[in-house]
Design a protein around this nucleic acid. Structure first.
Lengths: 132, 132
DNA sequence: TAACAAACGTTATATTATAACAATATGATA
DNA sequence: TATCATATTGTTATAATATAACGTTTGTTA
């Protein structure tokens, strides 16, 4: 709540819409939704999105060019994201799993590269769609 | 080599360019490169890319909207990809690491979802850029 | 209050990707 | 080989996603 005060007007409006959505939202669908609130141009949306991502409030689902609110930690800057995506109904869920995040956060290979950040997207069939 | 014969003319041309490139290529830069070979429209490129991805010959690096040749297995359909991406020089490397792939291929969470496929992108600083 | 950084609004444009349609080539098999 | 199904091609147009460049406003803090 303290942190949310530091968000600007546009940032609040856009975060609010994303938090209320049940699925990832695309930038232009956000734009459409906020036009009644005076946000008229794509750039205004993209700028807010960029800031919200930096703050860890939202994540981008890269394979879908869409944005979801972060549900795991409230005010932390997010460096690591994992999603599960159903290939039929397209439902996207953020995965909060310690075993997974511990493994990936401590992952090292022989390249000598130090990884600070990752994005993982799993694809498969969700419970519902598996039955069909 | 046997497999490559089943590729169509456009598919071969485009795979060839991607294989020779040292970094991931964007669709429109591929288009520019193949115009002398008679491929004139974006769709011709995107169609070939789509097929090559299905065959596992190339992968899409989602965070960069760019395409790289698969270096790990030669003729397998690829369901699982992992890349390391340097945040400074933007170098992209496909990660071939059994520990990682075993872990991810067998990953299950409580959602009841069965994962057939994943895409992982690590971000950090490569050896060279770390020194700077 | 002066000075700086962050956010804003606006127009224009760049970049990435697909729809829709007709024609042609290719491979399997009767 | 004739024929059928399928994949691929070529083409035009357009949709969808994202950023550049400019000047203004607001907020912070020295």
């Amino acid at each position: 709540m303290a942190q949310i005060q530091t968000l600007s007007k546009n940032q609040k409006i856009i975060l609010d819409i994303i938090e209320k959505a049940k699925e990832p939202l695309k930038a232009y669908s956000i734009l459409f939704n906020v036009q009644k609130k005076g946000i008229k141009a794509p750039l205004q949306v993209y700028r807010a999105l960029e800031k919200l991502i930096k703050l860890g409030k939202i994540h981008k689902v890269e394979s879908k060019n869409a944005f979801v609110a972060c549900k795991s930690s409230n005010c932390e800057v997010s460096k690591a994201t994992a999603f599960s995506i159903c290939e039929i109904c397209e439902k996207v869920t953020e995965i909060a799993n310690n075993k997974l995040s511990n493994f990936l956060n401590s992952f090292e290979d022989k390249s000598g590269m130090k990884y600070k950040k990752y994005n993982l997207e799993f694809f498969g069939l969700c419970k519902k769609c598996k039955k069909t």
